[in-house]
Design a protein around this nucleic acid. Structure first.
Lengths: 277, 277
DNA sequence: AAATTGTGTTCCGAATATTGGAACTTCAAT
DNA sequence: ATTGAAGTTCCAATATTCGGAACACAATTT
């Protein structure tokens, strides 16, 4: 989303000396959020020293940042001095979710796609080199509600992620791919930039991305990209299911349905956003 | 959660000149989050001038704060210059939810209570004069997933809210009640501090709070308080249902079930947290 | 029991980011 | 074209953050 080649004014010629690529200057706030992100990215509560090791701030500074975050309810401090993400963020997120126009517009299309396939449908957007899931429609709802929503997964081994990548302008695509730290989740995971870029080409040609058990063994999906006219916004949707139930042929037969849904969402977004031009 | 009479050191005798009660000093971060909160509390996207009117910051300052929030992904800026809450918060919230020990511990008890009553069960915590819902178990899950979770509702007209209030130490209770701006939602809504405090007394005596169509017409609930040993943490759980299906008698017959569930959760929390002393 | 190490917290001058008024730019409407 | 409203940028004054070092406190070792 951070288009590095933006703001092409001529009035600023010498400012861009710092070639340091995607480092936005958000001052004090940015540093605080970076700390928050460290805590949020951990799988379990972290203690002060753990955070100190990951953050490159001096002790005193980090301590004040953490105190402020706790005071604001963005973090919570357990009696054993462990920090975890605060529930105040739930309030913010509930608003973000309910008010998200993209999600609202997409919802009926997700339902329809679910009705047609009977399998789980996901909606997600790109954020850096992660995909964040915005919504999910599945049959056996009973289990866990939040589950996938809000989850951040890697771009390079998820259907939605690869679909999103395929919709990026080349410059951005290169930047994102360069920022990935590949990790092998299964035997099929793509673990090199080249393999990923080659697959992006295929996706651009066919209009569909596949996840062939690349993230979780036994889980397959078909996805298609969704984007705004100027590509300032990029995401995707997918149909996911267990390999034992979904043959490769069946998966491919759904490809056109997923593309149609993506097209429908983009049309609706255009109708909603277009007139405002 | 902000205990005003904390940190009773003797080393600080003259610092507390500012009697300005519950104003924490979280510096730049606090101001930024206040802006975020303004946007999050609105029902629809706000434009710059709208925010300017609610924030007491000068134009230039507010503009930078908004820009930083957007840059960090906490807000998103539409092409029509409207600000809305950013999806990056979803990632944080997903972690906050999944990692919240209280919620994890409470979950089986919520399910059991749902099985016993067949109606919707809510779990929430107090934050200031709002209650934030952490979890929900309901029968017809098919509708909307996020729905209530993360929602912030007033303390004074919800079962969980009043239950929580009843568990607060008197000093805090007074402070919270004083901060409430009462609003009439239905004919039954309590709209004065006195009426509320009187009801808190009853709740303390009986161990149960009721919402008798005080927030939404046609919706009733029974709740019970949950708190940590030192009351540093206060919340509640409730069983909610439509008035046409739930007679007052039926509601009262569930009171003991709700209390039992609350007791069970507190026991489990003690077992989990106690040994760590 | 005394010493030691590991963790977390507080303090304060120096460095830096924020502030806020005013000037500047768009864009829409008259 | 002209006006007005809305949004954006600029820069010196100021308040905040920074970060090293000293301080508490607890757990562990000698």
């Amino acid at each position: 989303m951070d288009n590095p080649a933006d703001h092409g004014d001529e009035a600023r010629s010498e400012i861009d000396r710092k070639v340091e690529p995607a480092r936005a200057d958000t001052g004090t706030l940015g540093k605080a959020i970076a700390v928050l992100d460290i805590v949020a990215s951990a799988d379990e509560p972290m203690r002060f020293t753990d955070i100190l090791a990951l953050s490159d701030q001096p002790r005193g500074t980090l301590h004040r940042q953490l105190s402020n975050l706790v005071e604001e309810g963005l973090l919570s401090l357990g009696r054993d001095h462990s920090y975890s993400v605060g529930i105040r963020l739930l309030k913010f997120a509930a608003r973000a979710w309910a008010g998200n126009q993209f999600r609202v517009i997409a919802e009926p299309h997700l339902r329809k796609l679910h009705d047609l396939t009977g399998e789980t449908v996901h909606l997600g957007v790109l954020r850096g080199n992660e995909v964040i899931y915005l919504d999910k429609v599945e049959s056996r709802q009973a289990v866990r509600m939040y589950s996938q929503i809000g989850n951040a997964s890697p771009v390079y081994c998820t259907g939605v992620g690869k679909a999103g990548l395929s919709a990026l302008p080349d410059a951005e695509l290169q930047a994102v791919v360069a920022s990935i730290r590949f990790r092998r989740f299964t035997d099929s995971t793509l673990v090199t930039p080249d393999a990923l870029l080659r697959e992006i080409e295929e996706i651009r040609a066919s209009g569909n991305a596949y996840d062939r058990e690349e993230h979780e063994p036994g889980i397959r999906c078909v996805a298609a990209p969704i984007y705004s006219a100027d590509r300032s916004f990029v995401g995707g949707l997918s149909v996911t299911g267990p390999a034992y139930r979904i043959s490769t042929d069946l998966l491919e037969s759904w490809a056109v349905l997923v593309r149609d849904a993506a097209r429908g969402i983009m049309d609706d977004m255009g109708a909603r956003l277009g007139p405002r031009t």
